[in-house]
Structure formats: C-alpha cells, structure tokens
Simulated assay, not measured.
Amino acid sequence: MTDKQKAMAYWKENLKYLTILLVIWFLSSYGAGILFKDALNKIQFGGFKLGFWFAQQGSIYVFVILIFVYVRLMNKLDEKYGFDE
C-alpha cells in the first residue's frame, strides 16, 4: 500500500467514525431533548423527567463521553496505519 493509499484509507475510516459519533450526538441532543421528549418524559430519572434531563444535562454527558471514545478510536486508527508517534 502506498503512502497516498494509506492516507486515503485513514481519512475514509476517520470520516466514518466522525459520522457515527455525530449521529449519536445528534440523536442524544436534538432527538432525545426535543423530538422524543414527550415519550421520554414518561420515564423518571433522578426525580426529573428523562426528556428534560437529556435536554439539560444528558446530551452534555454524551458529548463528553463521545470525546473520549473519539480519542480512543483515533489512537487505534493511528496505530493501524502507522501514524502514531
């Protein structure tokens, strides 16, 4: 595999990871906090309705977790394609 092919494969896999993580973030913030809030509000979490909790705090927690997941995925991807330090 040439360096250019390696870089293209790396970037393609990186975009796949980004797309998946952004979809998860979208579903947890916009989906759970706005679109599905009525259904989620039937469930209580810590004394609050789940739709309200996702709109106020849950999406932030999911975002922070996704940052750590992305770092881990990128470290593995760097090792796979030999771009690690």
Rank of each mutant, 00 (worst) to 15 (best):
M1P: 15
K4T: 09
K4F: 07
Q5G: 15
Q5E: 15
K6F: 04
A7C: 12
Y10S: 14
E13P: 01
N14E: 11
N14A: 10
Y17Q: 06
L18H: 06
I20E: 06
L21M: 06
V23L: 13
F26V: 02
F26E: 05
F26H: 13
L27M: 13
S28E: 00
S28P: 09
S29Q: 04
G31H: 04
L35Q: 04
F36Q: 05
K37P: 03
K37A: 13
D38Q: 07
D38K: 11
D38S: 10
D38M: 04
A39F: 12
I43S: 14
G46P: 10
G47K: 14
G47L: 12
G47N: 13
F48L: 14
L50C: 13
G51A: 10
W53A: 15
F54H: 09
A55P: 15
A55Q: 13
S59M: 06
S59P: 07
I60M: 11
V62N: 07
V62T: 03
V64D: 04
V64K: 02
V64R: 03
L66N: 02
L66M: 04
I67C: 01
Y70P: 00
V71D: 00
L73D: 00
L73C: 13
L73Q: 09
M74F: 03
M74C: 03
M74N: 10
N75I: 07
N75D: 04
K76N: 11
E79K: 15
E79M: 10
K80T: 05
G82A: 12
G82E: 13
F83V: 02
F83W: 05
E85Q: 07
